[in-house]
């Protein structure tokens, strides 16, 4: 396997290991990876945090899942259409193939995760950017903390049913975790990120 394939596989394994070993109700984990924008208009070598990989676990509580997908019918139709198109794109345009997963409700957290794949952040901007620039942990717990943070990504997360969002800076990017439950800050999670995502461990 190529080196990039290797990195991709291990990134996925590390994100999965992080969520599965944390033992709390994390809904997803994303690794925002740094890259360098050499075509910046200012001519600077600008650091950008873009999608590296993500692991979506989902909500275990079925009632919560139900509650988190109560978007209006038009919005649901839009989400299902996007999922159908993406499924067709990934499967090489095998249009017409019926797939039951295309007609299932797309929950708010699934949608938030999916939309995240299209996003990137300049260094210092947004939740991941701020975490990376200052090499610090941002832990927002409780819907009030998400909306009160003044950060658009956190506000969006709250709208899509998240109650906890965490960004932990690592060597080559930022690990973001989100949950539809309220999860208190723990050094255990930060230690896990450190051991999984920093090479000096």
């Amino acid at each position: 396997p190529s080196l990039s394939q290797f990195n991709e596989d291990t990134l996925q394994q590390r994100l999965q290991a992080l969520i599965e070993s944390a033992g709390e109700g994390w809904t997803y984990a994303i690794f925002w990876q740094i890259s360098h924008d050499f075509e910046s208009p200012t001519g600077d070598n600008t650091v950008v945090l873009g999608w590296g990989d993500g692991y979506y676990k989902g909500e275990e509580d079925k009632e919560k899942k139900k509650k988190s997908s109560n978007s209006n019918p038009a919005e649901q139709e839009h989400r299902k259409r996007v999922i159908r198109e993406l499924n067709s794109l990934i499967s090489g345009g095998g249009g017409g193939v019926s797939d039951e997963s295309n007609d299932e409700e797309v929950t708010d957290t699934e949608w938030f995760f999916l939309v995240s794949m299209t996003q990137s952040f300049a260094n210092g901007v947004g939740l991941p950017g701020e975490s990376f620039l200052n090499s610090r942990v941002i832990w927002l717990s409780g819907s009030g903390a998400l909306t009160g943070s003044g950060c658009e990504r956190a506000s969006q997360g709250q709208i899509y049913g998240l109650q906890t969002m965490v960004c932990i800076a690592a060597e080559n990017g930022v690990v973001e975790l989100g949950s539809s439950e309220v999860i208190s800050q723990s050094s255990d999670l930060m230690d896990k990120v450190n051991s999984l995502f920093n090479s000096n461990n």
């Binding site: 996925q12 979506y56 999916l114 794949m117 299209t118």
Partner: peptide, 26 residues
């Protein structure tokens, strides 16, 4: 940056595949 869209495509394929698995086991 060519690696970025590739990473997204792989993530997307994995997400859709796991979604199917979740829905089938529900």
């Amino acid at each position: 940056i060519p690696s970025v869209p590739q990473a997204r495509k792989a993530s997307l394929a994995r997400f859709l595949e796991k979604r199917k698995e979740r829905l089938m086991s529900a």
